[in-house]
Design a protein around this nucleic acid. Sequence first.
DNA 1: GACAAAAATGAGTGATTACTCACTTCACAA
DNA 2: TTGTGAAGTGAGTAATCACTCATTTTTGTC
Lengths: 232, 232
Amino acid sequence: MDRSEKDDAERRAQERWLEELLRAAEDDHPKMTDKQARIVNAAIEIFAEKGYSAASTSEIASKAGVAEGTIFRHYKTKKELLFSIVSPLVAKLVAPLVLKDFFKVLETPYPNYESFLRAVIRNRSEFVRKHLPALRIMLQEIPFHPELREPYKDVVVEGVLPRIRRTVERFQAEGALRADFPSDAVIRLTVTSAIGFLFVRHILMPDYPWDEEAETERTIDFLMHGLAGPRG
Amino acid sequence: MDRSEKDDAERRAQERWLEELLRAAEDDHPKMTDKQARIVNAAIEIFAEKGYSAASTSEIASKAGVAEGTIFRHYKTKKELLFSIVSPLVAKLVAPLVLKDFFKVLETPYPNYESFLRAVIRNRSEFVRKHLPALRIMLQEIPFHPELREPYKDVVVEGVLPRIRRTVERFQAEGALRADFPSDAVIRLTVTSAIGFLFVRHILMPDYPWDEEAETERTIDFLMHGLAGPRG
DNA sequence: GACAAAAATGAGTGATTACTCACTTCACAA
DNA sequence: TTGTGAAGTGAGTAATCACTCATTTTTGTC
């Protein structure tokens, strides 16, 4: 079994693993009581508003219109309630990076870094818009709960990153991306520019009258000029 | 009194206001008891480790090696202890942007966006390195405490931003920076790239074997290529 | 070393916390 | 209609919380 075969096998295993995770997350809350749904919604609101530690289960129960004991019928602990919100979100956030058909555009005969960027940014911007309050909770709590990042660290560092690194290096060899930067630097600058845009757009200044289309194109244009190679 | 005179007066008022704030922050804790200093250090450690709300005053006292009551001799409330750590830090963080001699390089006859960037990034990187744990606390708590941002919002939005916007627009008119982007977009891309670098460097991956010098130059080079005008 | 002021103490306080459990209500199949 | 398991309840519990205060210890001055 040579290197690429082993990589393929590993990748397929990762994909299966994540697909299972996503199945549980996708059909949002399979058989959930009305009151349980109210609890989750109230928890998202209050966790986002005052932070996980400062939020009390009694306040969540009150806002959900249920007895405090009801929360603990569905979730053993307050932490389990937090994880039931954040865990599937982390899965859905990294899912596109691991799933097989996401990098397809980069493995065609004439791949295009720019349209790849456009697809990712559009897709993830919609995702952020859709899950904003829960994402705020995730950003707040992920530093304090290694259990939330641990499951994905290896997948990203050993699965996603090498794949994207190889792609970037091919672009560099072809002259589409500048070769005077290490591929890791190219990746870092790409990711921080994209995330920086999404962060400013949705979290830091959500009320600014953004022209989302134009601002997305500017971000991409800026990135492509900043990273252009001799034939880029 | 014409426009620029009024701006000048306002700017000088802002500078005086901030200089006073900084005086209190600069001579780090004027006459502070040994035990008070131990309390502050312990608080920084524990707030950074488990978050402000999840940290208890008893644990802080224990780590500082003082009685719990001692904390409340120096700080009326736990929140006042938090603010005594974060407030001066926010002041020191925005200080260089407001202070008069910081933009001097941009107001010389032949100003240089690139060396300005280099100076800011180097300066702030050193600042982040020096105050890392307290900065983590700031990033965690600033969303929940408007009192921490309020005092600086107007100064930045009405004082710093217009000044930098005018400078960027002059660079655009001269052809040093691209004029097909609004000045606000140029500023956003500059700030997110710089902060993105500092964030990845010091917070997200502090243990990666960074070549700080090289990575700083790459960030600047990337920015200058991404924002270059016809004569840039 | 005597004095006064400042600093530090730690047991104590009421409020709040996450969580439990004996019990009631509900949904639904037989 | 009745039986049954799941869903929901809310008073109760021990622990912990931020904070107080009467008292003791330390510090600086003559």
